[in-house]
Amino acid sequence: MRQLLLWSNLLLFLGIASCGPAVSDSPKDLPVRLRVPQGFPSLDFPPDNQPTQARIELGRRLFYHTDLSMDGKTNCGTCHVQSSAFTDGRTIAQGAHGQSGRRNTPTLANLGWSPYLMAEGGVPSLELQALAPLHEPSEMGINMMDAVARINAHEDLRALNRLAYGRDSLDPFTITRALAAFQRTMISGDSKYDQFKAGVSNLTDLERKGMELFFSKRLQCSECHSEPFFTDYGFYNVGLYTTYPDPGLERKTHLKADSGNFKTPTLRNIAVTAPYMHDGSLNTLEDVIAFYDSGGKGHHQQDKRIRELHLSQEEKEALVAFLHTLTDWNFLQNKTLSPWDE
């Protein structure tokens, strides 16, 4: 409740500031303590980007601002749609001017804990990552300096920027910091499964059976999709193809041994992030389970744990039911993660 009051004060200030200089008390930014779900490790912040109300709010406005795209119509939320756990339902992402990317849009849940960003894991921080989609022609497709010029035309953003980072104008530093500060608030740890673990919710028999299968030595799903994030952030060749059109990790390392290696995706909110796999080639969770049951296509570098599973129909249904318990409905509807004008 206290948090809500502080927010409304901040928004009130911004309303006044944009109309004239009639503010007597100079406004102050306030630190924010993000609630870390039970079972999650503590969340670290860079020394120069501790979370504050103004930083997070500035990041939210930038995240949904079309002035950060070349065509003036695209924003981060174009591909990262909250109701789909910040994915877009497309097979392959599509950015400014309808340009196609190369891969399926990843979810943004819990990126504050990710040891590295981007499909190849080459980018060490959310602050640095923010530069990638801006410059990528198939995403926002804009030069950061052009974006800076456009974004500084907005007095509400400049006011937030002053409050957040003490700088009169937005610049690459404050834009990337604010986007990162906002994205660190995209925390998802309140699924039915989490509630079950906390003892406040029950699983159905089918969901429970799926859970047992998921964590079983027989299936080994949880070896890579490990708790609490349901990913180990590792790179593996699961044998989706015998010859991968996309080199995967090899793009970064240029090592043949990394050909077809893709980062383990989180399974949190997996039921709402279809289609699946790095290229969106599988449409449903049933298709994905069927793929893993089949033991992969037999790529010569396929991970040894991908082998025929001989699942019964009921076991397949149980796994799908369990995966549905990983959906965090609060995360998909949390207004603090939505566009500010809604």
Binding site: M118, E120, G122, V123, P124, L128, L131, A132, L134, H135, E136, M144, M145, P172, K252
Partner: peptide, 14 residues
């Protein structure tokens, strides 16, 4: 810097 590097940076990989 972002402006000064004039595109001489691999943003997807640092």
């Amino acid at each position: 810097s972002v402006a000064g590097s004039q595109g001489m940076f691999w943003y997807w990989n640092t």
